[in-house]
Design a protein around this nucleic acid. Structure first.
Ligand SMILES: [Mn+2]
Ligand SMILES: [Mn+2]
Ligand SMILES: [Mn+2]
Ligand SMILES: [Mn+2]
Lengths: 152, 152
DNA sequence: TACATCTTGTAGCTTAGGCTACATTTTGCC
DNA sequence: GGCAAAATGTAGCCTAAGCTACAAGATGTA
């Protein structure tokens, strides 16, 4: 017989499709909030070190043009994370500060966790910037647990 | 004096902007290849279990409509990862199979690593789907090292 | 063989996030 | 105060990735 006749009436795949679909949908949702998270975190960092966040500073730090920053800030304002008046600095709302604090904390934890595995500072910084947005509360807790165990 | 007069002549921020910009740019590059990776991996899985990958199967597994699958497949064909003839199944090129194998391996490693930290199967599956694309070779090696250590 | 159902394809819409080019406002400095 | 440079804003372009609605081909079964 020929090697593999595709049976039209689906035999069960190894990894269930429903679970992978759920995972991918969650990943897409995380990507949708990722920009907001990186922006508020950057704004909080800049405000802490410079007293305010300006469009150019954000553009430099985020690695995009000031145009991209401007349009994104408009959305973040709509979403209630920042306040901005034309030609003035950018500031976080209470909601924005809360999100920023959570993101800063998570970012720090992810980097510390990667470092604890012996990963170089440079690679840890780079990988953490992407990984952080896909770390569920359960996984974040496991990272913290591992760090506490390491500290013993 | 007022609390914080923003000095226009940038004092050095805590986290250097250049490093964060580099990290974010790398994250965006990873997102650009993410769709291709998830697709070839799904095509390989389906081909292994069903003998071929069809548009509907991919749509179900990826959690999107068949329209989205169709347009993405056109791009993957352009990129040389898959071959497809109208109304026929989808198949990987040699390059596609190579990418799929690497992604399957990495996916497996990431899940095993998360499980080894005590994370539940469900959370591990979901988080791995996002995390996998942001794991550099150095970090992947660290995950494997940790798994070998655990196995002792 | 006919026909209903399943599958695949396509037209056209939306949003997000990049960009260049150019206009306008603010700021620093003489 | 005036002016150049810096910062900010805006118009308009691109691509990716999602969608609904509809068209057309393929398949299985009566
Ligand atoms: Mn971050
Ligand atoms: Mn990030
Ligand atoms: Mn994935
Ligand atoms: Mn991601």
């Amino acid at each position: 017989m020929p090697p593999k006749k595709p049976s039209r009436t689906a035999a069960k795949p190894v990894r269930p499709s429903a679970l992978q679909a759920e995972s991918l949908q969650q990943t897409r949702r995380e990507h949708a909030s990722e920009t907001a998270e990186d922006y508020v975190e950057a704004i909080a960092d800049l405000t802490a070190s410079l007293g305010e966040a300006r469009v150019v500073d954000l553009a430099r730090r985020l690695g995009v043009t000031h145009v991209t920053v401007n349009r994104t800030l408009a959305r973040l304002q709509q979403a209630g994370f920042v306040t901005a008046r034309p030609y003035r600095g950018i500031f976080l709302t209470a909601e924005g500060r809360q999100l920023a604090a959570a993101c800063q904390q998570r970012h720090t934890t992810v980097i510390a966790f990667l470092r604890s595995l012996g990963i170089s500072e440079h690679a840890a910084e780079i990988d953490a910037e992407g990984i952080e947005h896909h770390v569920s509360p359960e996984t974040l807790a496991a990272f913290e647990r591992h760090l506490r165990r390491e500290a013993r």
